[in-house]
Structures are given as structure tokens and as C-alpha cells.
Design a protein around this nucleic acid. Structure first.
Length: 154
DNA sequence: GCCAACGTTGGC
DNA sequence: GCCAACGTTGGC
């Protein structure tokens, strides 16, 4: 099993929003970055676990756990001229953008803020804590995953 | 709201 | 294929 971290701006889509979806499941649409696209299309597998990260907000940090429940398939919002994610270069015949379906598992016991993650030496190689990184989806090493979960307890 | 860092676009 | 211009991300 592999581990991941996915960012979302809580004003657009938060962990609470996910929890309140039917089946507590939602497709992760709107990603328009090739690296992130490749991970969703090729690497994220059923049962993989994912940290939900809130970005661009008062307290950026890890807020919950989720699980991949459907592997990569075309992001249909790219086909819809009404969507803000519309991309005329993506067609159903030759889709350019992909998404996965994600299911809520639980909130973390507390928000684990970015400021705290940055202070952890074992996490210093995570793209998340590196300056200028803009990846909205990234792999998490097994040891990093376990380490972060231990931070949950104050 | 600012701005550094980064990715993408398009002229040449 | 280079690179300037532009747009976006996201912490602060």
C-alpha cells in the first residue's frame, strides 16, 4: 500500500465537505498539474491512504485521513465549457486530465500544522515542507506517514 | 494583500 | 529549443 498527501483550500473543499458527501466520497477533480496528474493516473491504487491537507487558510496543515476508492479516470470537468476547469485540449477520446475518487476515513485528533511539520527532522525531505514547493499531490513515505500519525497525540 | 517560487505559454 | 512574459500557488 502507498501513502499520499493531497492539498485543498478549505474554502473550496474542506475535510468537513468530504465527510458530508454522499458515501463520504468525492472525485478529486480540477487538478491541472502534470506531475499530480501522473500520480493520479498511474500510481494511486485502491486502498492507498491519503492525508487531507488544508492550504491557503488560517492554519495550513494536515486535518484528516482518506482512502482511494477509485483509481485514475478522466476528469470530466475538463470537457465542460461551463466549468472553471474546462480545457479544450482535453477530449473524451484523448483525455488530458485525470482524477481519483477519495473516501473520508476520519479527522485527525487535531490539526497538525505546517509550522510543526517543518520542525520535524524526520520530515525534512517531504516536498511539503520544502520552500517553493507547489505540488498539490505528493507521495508520503511509510516512515513519514507513521511519524506524522504519532504527532497527532499532543 | 504581498510576493517568492514555480509552471506554462508562445514568439522567435 | 530558448526564454521572457504571464498566471498560479500558497505561506505569511
Amino acid at each position: 500500500m502507498n501513502y499520499w498527501l493531497m492539498k485543498s483550500e478549505p474554502e473550496a473543499f474542506s475535510i468537513d465537505d468530504l465527510q458530508n458527501m454522499p458515501q463520504q466520497t468525492e472525485h478529486w477533480d480540477g487538478v491541472r498539474n502534470y506531475q499530480a496528474r501522473n500520480m493520479m493516473r498511474d500510481q494511486m491504487k485502491l486502498g492507498d491512504k491519503v492525508f487531507f491537507y488544508h492550504s491557503n487558510c488560517e492554519m495550513p496543515g494536515i486535518v484528516g485521513l482518506m482512502e482511494v476508492v477509485r483509481e485514475g479516470y478522466p476528469d470530466h470537468t475538463a470537457f465542460d465549457p461551463q466549468s472553471k476547469y474546462f480545457d479544450p485540449k482535453s477530449t473524451p477520446e484523448q483525455p488530458r486530465w485525470f482524477m481519483v475518487d477519495i473516501k473520508y476515513i476520519r479527522h485527525t485528533r487535531r490539526v497538525i500544522p505546517l509550522t510543526e511539520l517543518k520542525q520535524q527532522e524526520p520530515l525534512e525531505n517531504m516536498p511539503l515542507v520544502r520552500k517553493g514547493n507547489r505540488l498539490s499531490i505528493m507521495p508520503v513515505r511509510n516512515v513519514e506517514w507513521d511519524y506524522i500519525l504519532r504527532l497527532e497525540n499532543p
